[in-house]
Structure formats: C-alpha cells, structure tokens
Design a protein around this nucleic acid. Structure first.
Lengths: 199, 199
DNA sequence: CACGCTCTCATCTAACTGTTTGACAACTTC
DNA sequence: GAAGTTGTCAAACAGTTAGATGAGAGCGTG
C-alpha cells in the first residue's frame, strides 16, 4: 500500500467524525461478535451484522474481505484476549471463580468457541500449559490421584456448562441460567467441588 | 438430456427390495441425524441428507413435510430414546461410566442437543427428576455439602465435554478425543472425581 | 389387468445471501 | 482551494437453497 513516508496523520477530529475507519472496524467486529456468537457462522447474516453496527454491509467486504474474513479476524482477536488471564498466585478455587464470572458476564467467547468446535474448525491454538496445574497439585491444591489434564478439561466443561447447556440448567435447577440466583449457586457448588478434589 | 425415455435405470441393487416406506423413513432419519448433528440445522443441506440416505430429496417433503419437519421429528425421536437409561441399582460411578461410553459410541445426540441449545431452540423436555440423586446422597454416594442438582449438571458437562470441546482435548491431552486412549483416561478420571465427591 | 401407493427424476421458482459495481461524500494533501 | 485518496452507501448481481410440480416407473393387491 502507501509507503511509510506518510508521517503521523493529522489529529483526526477528536469529537465527532463522519468518516472514521477505526471506529467502523470496531463497530463491525463488535456487532459480528454478537451475531456470530448468537447464531454461528452459517446462521449469521451479513446484513444483520451491518444493521447492528449501523453501517453498510459492503464495509464488511471492504475491511475484512468478506464474511469469512470477519469471522477469522474475530477468532484471532479473541484468542489474544484469552491469553492474559491465569494468575498463579491465586488459590485455584478463586481462579476458577474468576473464569466463571467472566464467562457469565460475557458468554460470547465461549459460545463462539463451542460453535467452532461443533463445526470442526481448527484454530491454531497452542498446546495448553499444564505446568501450573502440576505445581498446584504438588502444592496440595489437587489430590495426587487426579490427572492435571483431566482437571483442566473438567474446569473448562463446568465453566462453559451454563452457556452450552442452558436447557439443562432450566430442567435441573428450574431457574434461568443467567439469573443471579443460578450464578451464585453454581459458583458456590464449584468451589465445594474443587475443595473435594483437593483432598 | 432427457428426451429419450430411459428405460434402463441404473442398476437398482438386484437383491435389495425397493419401495419400502418404513425403510426409507428410517434411512432419512438416520441420514438426517448424521447431517444435523454434524452441521446443525442451518448448515445441513437437504440434498446432502438425501444423498447420504441414497434417496431422492423430494421424499423429505413427502414424509416429513420439509427440512424443519424432519429436524423436529429427529428431536422427538431422540428424546424418547434418552428416557430409558437410568438404573437406580447401579453405583453412581458405574452409571456415569455408562453414560460416558454411550456418549463416546454415538455423540450425535449430544451434538444435536448442544446445537439446539446454541440456537436457542426450546424443546418441551420435562423437569429433570432429582429424587434419585437425593437418594444416592442419603445413601452416602454424594457428600452432604454438595447440591444434587449441581452434581447432575456437572455430570452432563463432563460427559459432553469430549463432544463439545474436542479442540480443548487436543490442546490439553495432546490426543484425539475419540481415541481409545483418551476414552479410557477420561473415564478413569471421572470415576476418581466421583469418588472424591462422595467423601 | 387396473388401481393405488411408493418412489425417482428433471424442471421450475421464489426467496435469500454474500459479493461486486459504481457513484459520491468526507477527508487529506499540496 | 483543487486534486486525489479514502470511507460509505445503495443497487444490481450471481450463486445457492428449500420446496413445488408433474410425468412416470416399481410393486403389491383387488
């Protein structure tokens, strides 16, 4: 494209701008996250994404090269965010609770991941690091007869459960999966389960 | 093209009987289960279902009134099958293992359920019965401080996990979710977890 | 054999979807 | 302020899909 000769662009009108590429990109990505996490790739409509962003659908092609490009960009972006979470200093119980709350507050990432899993899309995510879990096991936070890998998968499963099987929540608990009551109850139970698995 | 009345149909499998409505229905349902569980409702193609069944796609309209009718029928059928499973005489650990093996042997039902959950379809499934779990808790199969409802949801989650998050399995365990190695390892770990939760 | 149910095949169409095209306004640069 | 670039939009386009229709073959039964 244009060479690096272009210096710092003139301050782009701090207040209100009619043409704001960065803003448009962001709006589209945000709208796409909503739509794709809600309906999946096949179910999502480019028109709906554009409508939600309040922009013309043609901009999806313009900025991302089409529906699929937008979808991929979304996956990449979310992967970046995902990485910065683990805190070795926290007790495992707290760490799990943190993940759980994040999942409740914004289930879109989880829904997107599940959809990718169901449609058999393979992301190039790196091998999961088990060293932290092993350390916790050595420190007595996890019983010796349990497999750190299995523990991790179980955690993924139970944190995602409210998002992936809301129908089961309604059936079993008789309350809405996103209600404060359920959030609290599920978190407390997970805490207890983790405690049981430490001994 | 078509003008010549083609009396020579392509060899219609001499020994196999044609014109068998029950068989056609079954073939279509089976093929539909494959396709829908694999690609979801929006992603599945009527043509593909017909191809897989080795039948004409028009029969889908003929027997089920269209794609959606077939989809609904599928949900109803699977619900019926699901019901007959619980065996109160079995130790909980064994019961869980049974569910797990069933899930491994045929993940289509689980995949379909997850897809329904993601797309927000509400089946009219009955309220889940917790009495058996309560009985087990009273009998000492589940620690007193744990919620039977939470236990049940956790079981659903961990049994479904290999089907709903195969990518996580590959990341964490480094093996294929449907490999015998993983099946065995996951079952053993779930058994141990259940044991931990009994005390 | 004639009749009705089962099934195949080819064709059509109506709707829908993602993308392309072209016009044009907003903005930058000189 | 003029020229050129970038951002945005509306309409047209091309591909796909589910479903309808009609002609007709296979097959059991009266």
């Amino acid at each position: 494209m244009h060479g690096t000769s272009r210096g710092a662009r003139r301050a782009p009108a701090p207040e209100e701008r009619k043409l704001d590429p960065a803003r448009s990109r962001r709006l589209l990505l945000e709208a796409a996250m909503d739509e794709f996490s809600e309906k999946g790739f096949a179910g999502a409509r480019v028109q709906d994404i554009a409508d939600r962003a309040g922009l013309n659908k043609q901009l999806i092609t313009y900025y991302f090269g089409g529906k699929e490009g937008l979808y991929r960009e979304l996956g990449r972006e979310w992967l970046r965010r995902e990485a910065t979470f683990n805190d070795p200093a926290l007790p495992f119980e707290e760490l799990l609770a943190r993940y759980l709350r994040a999942a409740f507050d914004d289930p879109r990432g989880i829904r997107l991941a599940i959809w990718q899993a169901l449609t058999g899309e393979v992301g190039d995510e790196p091998r999961e690091d088990l060293s932290d879990m092993r350390r916790r096991q050595a420190a007595g936070e996890l019983a010796d007869d349990l497999d750190p890998a299995a523990m991790l998968l179980m955690c993924y499963a139970v944190v995602s459960a409210p998002a992936t099987m809301p129908h089961a929540v309604r059936q079993i608990f008789g309350i809405e999966p996103d209600s404060p009551e359920f959030r609290e109850r599920w978190e407390q139970q997970l805490r207890r389960i983790v405690r049981h698995l430490a001994t």
